[in-house]
Simulated scan of single mutants.
Amino acid sequence: MKEEVLNDDSGAHLPLLFGRVLDGEGGGRPIDWDEVQRWNPTAAEPVLWIHLLRTHLGVQEWLEDWLELTEPTAELLTSDATRPRAFREGHSLVATLRGINFNPGAEPEDMVSMQLWSDGVRVVTLRRLPLQTPRIVCNEIDSGMGPNDAGALVTALTEHMIDRMSHSIIDMNDMIDELEDETIGNDTGEMLDKIVAVRRNCLALKRHMSPQHEALTSIANSAPAWFEEHDRREIAETIARLRRHLDDLDISKESAVVLQDDIRARAAANTQKTQYLLTIVAGIFLPLSFITGLLGINVGDIPLAAPGSHGFWIIVLMCLCIFAAEIMVARRLKWL
């Protein structure tokens, strides 16, 4: 589903990417920017959700005026401070969460942040870069299978954000398994580059996801009263799932380290084997080189140099005998 970027009368883009009014039964209807300004909760339409582009000019001022937020809170919701965190402010919940960046050309460790504010009646989410999680939840609402209140909406957003992380973690695990199957007969340098990329992704995801674990725990423990008990249980399940993802990242990182050490050990063993063979060959040919070099000096009285003495063939036969003797000694000493 494409985000619905609304326009005002002048044609300038408004901050509203899309909005939905929940009907309390899992469904909802779209709402435009003008209606957002006039909206009030009713029994038939108890919750409003709007998804905003936080980089739009005037968003912070609008949040302060319409939601009556304090300046620090409005600044937090529109700033580039994207470290995951969550806290309660009166009867409202304020949170910054991160999700995997699945935009074209992005790497898994490139995280996308989403700011969230809710007072139990209105839910406001904000983003800078496209994030697929809000679109998924919006599709569920349009199909009548979405959340029915603000707490369930916050829970659905966090659940989908964490679930999508599992795809990147599974992909990294599959890549490690493939690399383990390809360790023999492949370019060592290329494989080491792939393993380094996996380790870098694991470290980056772990660095970003650990604060997210703390943020979700804060939501579960200190959310306002409108965040009901079943919502807290759902958040607890999401926290447990995130904890498993963090453990999987640790396993993937350790597997990559073991595989990297194994490849380097094999490469070192192959190098040592080659050096060993070259040393044996050099040791075998050293006496032969000494004899031929000694007899090849250009001075008088060189033995077997007289015409008719068959010196060349005698030297060849002598070198062959020395070579055979060296081979026998090397075999007996188990050098070959």
Rank of each mutant, 00 (worst) to 15 (best):
250 D>Y: 04
44 A>Q: 14
136 I>A: 09
169 I>V: 14
274 T>A: 15
26 G>H: 06
258 V>N: 09
114 M>W: 05
328 M>C: 07
257 V>E: 11
273 K>T: 13
259 L>F: 09
202 C>N: 07
101 N>G: 12
100 I>T: 03
278 L>T: 03
144 G>Y: 03
257 V>C: 02
43 A>S: 15
125 T>K: 05
147 P>I: 10
235 I>M: 15
322 I>S: 13
97 L>S: 05
185 G>S: 01
187 D>C: 07
2 K>A: 14
227 F>K: 03
231 D>M: 04
153 L>H: 01
196 V>P: 02
201 N>T: 14
21 V>H: 02
239 I>L: 12
92 S>V: 04
309 S>H: 09
271 T>I: 10
164 R>S: 10
176 I>R: 07
100 I>Q: 00
257 V>W: 09
175 M>Q: 04
120 G>W: 02
107 E>L: 12
308 G>V: 12
252 S>W: 09
255 S>C: 00
202 C>P: 02
166 S>E: 11
146 G>R: 05
24 G>R: 14
319 C>W: 06
3 E>I: 11
59 V>H: 05
55 T>P: 01
133 T>N: 08
36 V>M: 04
171 D>G: 07
239 I>A: 08
231 D>C: 12
159 E>H: 10
145 M>T: 15
272 Q>A: 15
323 F>P: 03
336 L>E: 04
282 A>I: 07
221 N>C: 06
295 L>C: 04
152 A>Q: 11
281 V>F: 11
230 H>N: 05
308 G>S: 05
49 W>S: 08
121 V>Y: 01
23 D>G: 05
162 I>S: 00
72 P>C: 03
300 G>H: 04
100 I>S: 00
263 I>Y: 05
245 H>P: 04
105 G>N: 08
309 S>C: 15
55 T>E: 12
161 M>A: 06
193 D>E: 13
283 G>A: 15
311 G>N: 01
131 L>C: 06
105 G>A: 10
300 G>P: 04
244 R>G: 05
123 V>H: 11
190 E>C: 04
140 E>K: 13
308 G>P: 08
210 S>H: 04
169 I>C: 00
310 H>N: 13
115 Q>T: 10
63 L>H: 04
221 N>K: 14
326 E>V: 11
324 A>F: 04
243 R>L: 08
2 K>C: 11
307 P>H: 13
270 N>K: 14
187 D>N: 12
61 E>L: 14
135 R>E: 03
317 L>Y: 03
115 Q>A: 15
299 V>C: 10
210 S>N: 04
306 A>Y: 02
55 T>R: 14
41 P>A: 14
196 V>K: 09
263 I>Q: 01
88 R>G: 01
84 P>G: 02
254 E>A: 12
258 V>G: 02
299 V>T: 13
211 P>I: 05
52 L>T: 10
323 F>G: 08
182 E>C: 10
327 I>Y: 01
54 R>K: 11
158 T>K: 01
274 T>V: 12
